[in-house]
Structure formats: C-alpha cells, structure tokens
C-alpha cells in the first residue's frame, strides 16, 4: 500500500512540477528565439562572397535536461504498445533548442552582425543512457551545439 502511495506522489510531482518547468522553459525558449531572429544559423559551410568577414570563431552551447517521473512512466507505458513517445520528443526538442540558443548568445557576444555557419549538434551520455535505449542511473538528454561564428564588417 505504502509503495502505491509513494508511486502516486512521485507521478504527481513529475506531472505538476515537471509540467510547470517544461511550460516555463518553452516560454523562455520562444521569447529568446524571437529576440535572436536576426542572428542567422546555417548548417552549410558556404560563405557568401558578399560577406566582409571581420572575425571567425568557434562558438558552442551546451544543455543537459532531465526527464521527470511522469514522463518516464508515460514512456514506459508507451513502450508496451509502441508508437510515438511524445513525452520524450519535447525533452529532446527543449535540449536542442536551448543548446542552440546558448550558442547564439556566445555568437552575439562577438558584436555587430553575426552569422553562424556549419552548425552541428552532438549528443553525449554522461548519465549512462545507452544508444540502445537501456538507461543508466539518471535519464537525461545532453546536447552540444557548435558552429563557426562570422562577425561581418
């Protein structure tokens, strides 16, 4: 009986606190994305001949986001029937966008008009989450975004 109560409390904590954190994180992502629309990110390497490049520098952004208890239970249930695991989709989306925003902040610090080219995203696994889906002690999404920032004269 006590086990069931603990389980319900954990799921409720995950649902309410985790859900609240996700919504406020998304609000902050939307606001910052809107504020940095001027800063272009390109995944290609081509340099427009019209650009007068004053400075080139490697810029990076890092973000690690944890699952919450509700999400891991929901994903576990989803695993039984298969299909789209939307609980984890939003997690990966947040981590990638946050990493890109942090990279953008670093690029913006160069000053003036900045373009970031050859943007790459790399995922890591501190928490021991294996590529085959077996999880370690802690389940999380870890993203490194990097690219070459060009400050245009």
């Amino acid at each position: 009986m006590a086990d069931i109560i603990v389980f319900i409390v954990l799921v409720a904590c995950g649902y309410f606190i985790g859900g609240h954190r996700e919504r406020s994180h998304y609000r902050s992502i939307f606001a910052r994305e809107a504020a940095t629309l001027e800063l272009t990110l390109l995944s290609g390497k081509a340099i427009d001949p019209a650009w007068q490049v004053a400075q080139a520098a490697l810029v990076t952004g890092v973000c690690v986001i944890s699952v919450d208890y509700f999400k891991s239970v929901a994903a576990g249930l989803r695993n039984l029937v298969g299909g789209r695991v939307s609980a984890y989709e939003s997690l990966i989306d947040r981590a990638r966008r946050e990493a890109l925003l942090r990279m953008k902040a670093q690029a913006a610090a160069l000053g003036g008009k900045v373009v970031v080219i050859n943007v790459r995203l790399e995922t890591s696994s501190i928490s021991g989450m294996k590529a085959d889906g077996r999880s370690g002690q802690v389940a999380s999404v870890e993203v490194i975004a990097y690219g070459t920032a060009l400050a245009l004269a």
Partner: peptide, 13 residues
Amino acid sequence: LKNIFGGELKGYT
C-alpha cells in the same frame, strides 16, 4: 532526484 521533478541538470551542463 531531478529525475523526479524534471528540468535542467545544471551540474551536468
């Protein structure tokens, strides 16, 4: 612990 509540893992970042 954060795995219960969700959110960013600042230590790991």
